[in-house]
Design a protein around this nucleic acid. Structure first.
Length: 520
RNA sequence: GCCCCCAUCGUCUAGUGGCCCAGGAUGCGGGAUUCUCAGUCCCGAGACAGGGGUUCAAAUCCCCUUGGGGGUACCA
């Protein structure tokens, strides 16, 4: 039997981070077992713009390198893969259940059902007995049908059953069917409800392993009954824990985004996007950490996010933290998925991301950074060899300081002509007694300096400060601010080399002028 | 209310009766390296929700309590 798993997203216009984790586990399990991973689109609610709303989802899969064997764009032998196009399947299954007496028309209004349930609850009785419509005679049913009375289809739960599953993660779970209320399986307009559609689909798609979030565990009872009524074999279930929002015990959700913006647990992520996104022309409000696209746009590596997703709710052993996709395919196991829900941890994500970024060669890191510089207008659309080489040299000098590709924008002073001096640092390092004079003199040294390498510049500065009998730090800090405008960056000699002699000299002039101005 | 699931450092987790006065990672605190920042290297603080059993022995098994989460929709 070939393993077949699936992920069934609704086209919502973004890919949810928690959903992505579910998809990843399904994908890993399929790949590990040489099976198929299927993408089915749950678009019964959205009539319009499915394509547009689906694009970010497919893009997220592609970005992370998770392919699908059947689904949108690739087709497959069990299509169509859009629920909106599978109406006849649900219709046929519903009619069969009705004909076989396994489902019945319920003429009760929503309000009526509601009232009945409340009444029963007051008397502490489970609502399983509510089957008024089942007592209707054929003639009565026909009369109501003739009068065009609305009805929904309810599945007739056999009340004498113990429903048991051996969940791959939860273990043995069982329910008493006598406590279950007959579930509505299709609406008065004939469209199927989730529990029904999903069973019909999973059966028709020959899904062998249903790996999904824990919220569906209770639904499984009804679904098992439905599989049986339809004469289909029941798949293996694996209910994985929720991905919770950092700092909370609630499922991570886009609706809570305003709270997340204020939450300290999310701070590093929002700080990052505030640094990066405005510079590349993306509205900060348009993406957020609940969406997979956020990470792509900030410059995360697929490997970083994947490692983080793979480690929330799953572990390999007691020490292994860094896992490539290949490692995960090889070693993933449902049995090692944890039972308790896990909070997505941005700090740990950063740690994985830093690790995978550090694994990249400087050239590859430069390739990651390049598009960000282009989007920020700091580099032309088709960069010259000289520009590309500058990026590589800057990235090399920056080394571990680049954790996500978007970090390159923090060091924009290597890529633009005009810089702004950080006011605070300028005051602290340049506008202090003796420093402008020192800088003026050293400017002359630089202007006449033979060669322009980090080594020779260091030697020049050392002998200069020795002759002046001042600490090297005094000049170094001032020089850094003057040459880059910023207190942070690579070693100062690297900075001088990368910025170039001419620019360094003119920036020093500018700094000296500013210092003179402020001292007046 | 009823049904189901879950419970180890702040967080992610290891642990399937003795290897555990609980291991790793992350974050945090301190130190070292240093021209800043980042990194790296050391050191440190930090958890078995509570109560009962079972057993020579329990984080691990059982029961109860408490806490958290989910379901109970003509949502998915």
């Amino acid at each position: 039997m070939t393993v077949r798993t699936r992920f069934a997203p609704s086209p919502t216009g973004y890919m949810h981070i928690g959903g992505m984790r579910s998809a990843l586990f399904n994908w890993l399990f399929a790949r590990q077992n040489g099976g198929q991973f299927i993408l089915r689109i749950d678009d019964t609610d959205q009539a319009r713009n499915v394509e547009e709303a689906l694009a970010p989802i497919l893009n997220a899969f592609r970005w992370l390198g998770l392919d699908w064997d059947e689904g949108p764009e690739v087709g497959g032998g069990y299509g169509p893969y859009f629920q909106s196009q599978r109406g006849d399947l649900y219709q046929a299954a519903a009619e069969r259940l009705l004909a076989e007496g396994k489902a019945y028309r319920c003429f009760d209004s929503v309000e009526q059902v509601q009232t009945d349930k409340e009444h029963l609850r007051e008397h502490n009785t489970p609502p399983a007995g509510m089957r008024r419509s089942l007592e209707l005679s054929d003639a009565e049913i026909q009369t109501r049908l003739d009068r065009d009375e609305p009805w929904v289809l309810r599945f007739k739960v056999p009340h004498d059953r113990k429903i048991e599953i051996d969940d791959q993660i939860r273990g043995h779970v069982e329910w008493d069917s006598s406590l279950m209320f007959d579930p509505n399986i299709s609406r008065s307009n004939g469209s199927p409800l989730y529990n029904f559609a999903t069973v019909v689909d999973d059966a028709q798609l020959k899904i062998t392993h249903v790996i999904r979030a824990e919220e569906h565990l209770t639904n499984t009872a009804v679904q098992v009954l439905l599989y049986e009524a339809l004469g289909e074999s029941v798949p293996v279930f694996a209910h994985i824990p929720f991905v919770m929002a950092p700092g909370t015990k609630k499922k991570i959700s886009k609706r809570e985004i305003d709270k997340y913006r204020k939450s300290p647990a999310f701070k590093i992520l929002f700080d990052l996007s505030a640094r990066v996104l405005p510079q590349i022309g993306i509205d900060e409000e348009s993406v957020n950490p609940v969406m997979v696209g956020f990470y792509e746009q900030c410059g995360f590596l697929p490997a970083g996010l994947l490692n983080s997703l793979g480690r929330t709710g799953w572990s390999f052993d007691e020490t292994t933290e860094f896992m490539s996709l290949g490692f995960l395919i090889e070693h993933f196991s449902l049995g090692r998925v944890v039972k308790s829900s896990a909070a997505f941890d941005p700090e740990k994500l950063m740690s994985y991301q830093s690790h995978w970024m550090a694994e990249l060669s400087h050239e590859d890191r430069a390739d990651q950074c390049l598009p960000f510089l282009q989007k920020a207008g700091l580099l032309s659309d088709s960069p010259s060899d000289a520009e590309r080489s500058l990026v590589t040299r800057v990235v090399t000098a920056l080394d571990d300081r680049i954790k996500v590709a978007g970090d390159i924008l923090t060091y924009d002073y290597f890529f633009k002509a005009d810089i702004e001096f950080s006011e605070k640092d300028f005051k602290k390092r340049v506008s202090r007694s003796g420093v402008p004079e020192l800088l003026t003199e050293f400017r002359a040294v630089l202007a006449g300096h033979d060669g322009w390498s980090a080594e020779s510049l260091e030697a020049a500065l050392q002998s200069f400060v020795e002759s002046k009998e001042v600490g090297a730090g005094l000049l170094i800090h001032a020089l850094r601010i003057a040459a880059t405008g910023s207190a942070i960056g690579p070693g100062v000699y690297d900075c001088l080399v990368l910025v170039g002699r001419e620019t360094v000299l003119s920036r020093i002039d500018l700094a000296l002028a500013m210092a003179a101005e402020s001292s007046e």
